[in-house]
Simulated assay, not measured.
Amino acid sequence: MSKRTFASRRSGRHAAVAAGLLLAVGLGVSTQVPAQAAAHAPAKAPVTAPRSVSGTTGQAVTRVADFYGAYIDAKGDYTDPDATLAAALRKHYLTPEFAERLAVRERTNGVDGVLHAPNVPTQWTATDNGAVGNGHEVIVTLTFGSGGTAQRTKLYVLLERYDHIVDITTTTNR
């Protein structure tokens, strides 16, 4: 036999042995990985899409949504409501003239003038309703309670051109 033939056979055997070894190792690993993964992997929770809230500086709907979100949080923390924060938010977002009118309305009706209710809603949404004169109107829908007993109140929030709230009513300014 020539060296070439012997070398060809030897390299052929080595290749076959190496391929068999790789196949055996590969099959062993591939059958072990699912078993190990099933044994050690925690149960997966259902995948849900994350919620996001966004806004843009200078948009009326964002400004009203920011106000109502912070105001409801300040008033709705039942273990420790923050009256100081609620008052500061009113001072920041409402015009002084409207704040005075609102205080009179609250004394007369016995309800929170921003929420038009004696209690705090469980949900709220703010929807752009477009330009009105030199201002902008945003519809705020407040939901009180839940399920079949939930009640909704629709408020029309009017902002002046400098982004301060000048009125909150239950009828549109259009």
Rank of each mutant, 00 (worst) to 15 (best):
G58N: 06
R63A: 08
G69N: 10
S30V: 04
V111L: 09
A60S: 09
Q36H: 04
G69S: 14
H136G: 02
P50K: 13
D112Q: 10
G76W: 09
T57E: 09
R63T: 13
A131S: 13
G69Q: 10
L115Q: 07
V33G: 01
P121S: 06
V29C: 04
T125Q: 14
A24C: 05
Q32A: 15
Y68F: 15
L115W: 10
A38I: 00
N119R: 14
W124K: 07
V33R: 05
D73N: 10
A74E: 01
D80C: 03
Q32R: 13
F67Y: 15
T57V: 11
T48R: 15
E100H: 12
P118G: 14
V132R: 14
T95N: 07
D66P: 00
D112K: 12
G26E: 05
G135N: 08
K91S: 14
T122H: 11
N134Y: 12
G133Y: 14
V53I: 09
T108N: 12
D82H: 06
N129C: 02
G55E: 03
V53D: 02
L23W: 05
G28N: 07
N109T: 12
R105P: 00
L102W: 07
R107P: 00
V111E: 08
V61D: 08
R63N: 10
Q32I: 06
A35E: 07
D112P: 02
G58D: 04
G110A: 09
V120Q: 02
T31R: 15
P81M: 11
R51H: 05
L27H: 01
Q36Y: 13
T79Y: 14
D128G: 07
G58E: 04
N119F: 12
T79L: 11
G26L: 07
T84C: 00
S52E: 06
L89Y: 10
A24Y: 01
T84S: 09
R101V: 00
P42A: 13
Q32K: 04
V104H: 12
T48Y: 15
F67L: 13
H116T: 03
G110E: 05
Y78V: 08
P50H: 06
A99M: 06
L23I: 06
P34D: 08
V33Q: 05
L115F: 11
K44T: 12
A86E: 06
T127F: 05
A103W: 09
A39R: 14
P50V: 11
V64Q: 01
N129S: 11
A38T: 08
D77M: 04
G130T: 10
V114E: 01
A131K: 15
P50Y: 07
G69V: 02
N109C: 00
H92W: 05
Y68T: 04
A126C: 04
D128C: 04
A65S: 10
T127Q: 15
L94S: 06
V104I: 14
A43D: 04
L115H: 09
P34K: 13
T79E: 10
D82F: 08
N109F: 07
N119P: 00
G113R: 12
V132F: 10
P96T: 13
A38S: 07
T62R: 08
A37V: 12
T48Q: 15
R63Y: 02
I72H: 03
D82E: 02
T122C: 01
G76V: 06
R90S: 08
L23E: 01
R51G: 00
